[in-house]
Amino acid sequence: MSQDHSLNPETMPNEPEKATLEGKNKFLGLWFFLGGETVLFASLFGTYLALRNSAADGPTSEELFGLGLVFLMTILLLTSSLTSVYAMYHMKNNNFKKMQVWLGITALLGIAFLTCEIYEFTHYITEYGFTFRSSAFGSAFYTLVGFHGGHVTFGLFWLIGLMIRNAKRGLNLYNAPKFNTFSLYWHFIDVVWVFIFTVVYLMGKVG
């Protein structure tokens, strides 16, 4: 790496994330992946919509959901989307330290979101006895929301991995595309959450 000056130019190009062929490919590849993810989540949403009233004798969505916690989770994830925008802003201005700081804040917000979700699930299981096996509604709920939580977890490992691996390397044309693909993925996770809080929680409260 250290001999490769084409990846460490004196002046950074305007869009470091798309300045190399590899960067362009990563960018396109991630969007292709997101197209597929859309279909994956659509089938989970479709399943949930079909089964959301099949609560058997278990608790229903109106009894379970509390809007306060969901609102907090929404704000946490939405804010983490903005902080990753800030990180990409500093990447474009070639300011590695500030980018790392904002990515760190993004990771903390993601961890806070995940903590809320784990609390929520334990609350449902211990207080209401509402598990994956309670009813068709239970299975569909935990699959959909759990899949999203799994994506958040994966994103956190990805982000922390990127931050640690590149901590000493600084910003260059080799890793700028990596940070950029992560940020696109993270925004997409927020997109999915927007539909989850609308379709699962708000519609669940309306009935």
Binding site: M1, S2, N8, E10, T11, M12, N14, K92, N93, N94, N95, F96, K97, R169, G170, L171, N172
Partner: peptide
């Protein structure tokens, strides 16, 4: 990679 934190970016950009 010691030249990466210098903010060498043109003012217009």
């Amino acid at each position: 990679t010691d030249n990466t934190n210098t903010n060498q970016i043109d003012p217009f950009q």
